[in-house]
């Protein structure tokens, strides 16, 4: 009797397992192809996307009364490090003059959430020196020693190296024995290994790209890491200087281990399920700035048959 019951239970378990196995989590390839396709349609009141591989939760415009700043946040949790990725405007290379709207790049690579990269596809001035290692491939082996460097390793963890001559000769392809998958140069970093960076450093224009005057008032955005595979993107709605933005980041994400500023200003774009979700009005929607690259998070959940 006991044997029969056990066989029956086992059979039920197998049947239920087969019935729920309608997909699988598959690490994404380390190349310029995108993530798993998704079916969810964007809706203005849809605040959460979730599948077995990723959870993305966005906030609508929020106000910090103390700092008098309005902002947007997007909280992202992924299951596999291959889900934090970068993509260029030109689908074959990051070194190109081509610029296209962020939502177009995002839709091309099935990004659940996408944001500005470091505007690396420039050929002039300091921009032309940025080190470009993306999706595991080295596209340009120069370095702008003034700018902080964000290295995202194969485990999806952030490592930030502040600007300085040592950037020139250091090994940028691996950190702590882990392979670097994406390396970005914009900055400055606002938080490094849980420590706030001094205002004097982040307000120094020598540690910001040419067109991102840190003392000026502009729309700012950054990418934050809390713990392995848990990130947040923060973007101001109104103008802030870099020190004010750091205060906001500390208020919104007090437990973050690393926070790194990416290309913002008039180009700042948060894309959720293929649609721009920050600073949305008729004017900004008509005149969407074109970008050279994005950082994005994709699903790794492939439905059966995909």
């Amino acid at each position: 009797m006991l044997k029969r019951t056990l066989v029956l239970l086992l059979s039920l378990l197998i049947i239920s397992a087969v019935a729920t196995a309608d997909g699988e989590l598959r690490p994404l390839p380390l190349d310029l192809t995108g993530g798993a396709p998704y079916d969810t349609e964007y809706a203005s009141d849809l605040l959460v996307y979730e599948d077995p591989s990723i959870r993305v939760e966005r906030t609508l415009r929020t106000q910090n009364k103390e700092l008098r700043l309005e902002y947007y946040t997007v909280d992202i949790r992924i299951k596999d490090p291959s889900q934090i990725r970068t993509a260029p405007a030109d689908p074959t290379t990051f070194v190109s003059e081509r610029r296209i709207p962020a939502d177009t790049i995002a839709r091309r690579v099935n990004a659940i959430f996408a944001m500005n990269g470091d505007y690396c596809g420039d050929f002039h001035g300091h921009e032309s020196s940025k080190y470009i290692l993306r999706q595991g491939t080295l596209y340009r082996d120069t370095v702008d020693t003034r700018l902080d460097m964000l290295i995202i390793d194969e485990a999806g963890d952030f490592h930030i190296v502040q600007g300085g001559p040592e950037l020139e000769n250091m090994d940028k392809t691996a950190v702590d024995g882990k392979k670097a998958v994406n390396v970005l140069q914009f900055g400055p970093a606002l938080v490094i290994d849980g420590q706030e960076v001094d205002d004097a450093y982040i307000m120094d224009k020598n540690h910001s790209p040419q067109f991102a005057e840190p003392a000026g008032n502009a729309t700012r955005l950054c990418l934050v890491q809390f713990e392995p595979l848990h990130y947040m993107a923060i973007c101001t709605r109104n103008y802030a200087n870099m020190a004010q933005f750091k205060q906001l980041v500390k208020a919104v994400a007090p437990d973050c281990t690393n926070a790194y500023v990416l290309d913002g200003g008039g180009s700042a774009q948060f894309i959720f399920l293929g649609r721009k979700i920050n600073n949305v009005n008729a004017e900004t929607n008509q005149n969407k700035r074109k970008l050279s690259d994005i950082v994005y998070f994709a699903s790794a959940w492939f439905e059966e048959g995909e």
């Binding site: 192809t33 995108g34 396709p37 689908p91 177009t104 839709r107 091309r108 690579v109 099935n110």
Partner: peptide
Amino acid sequence: SEVWNPDFPE
């Protein structure tokens, strides 16, 4: 046209 993503021809 280019079809880097079959669901999203550009």
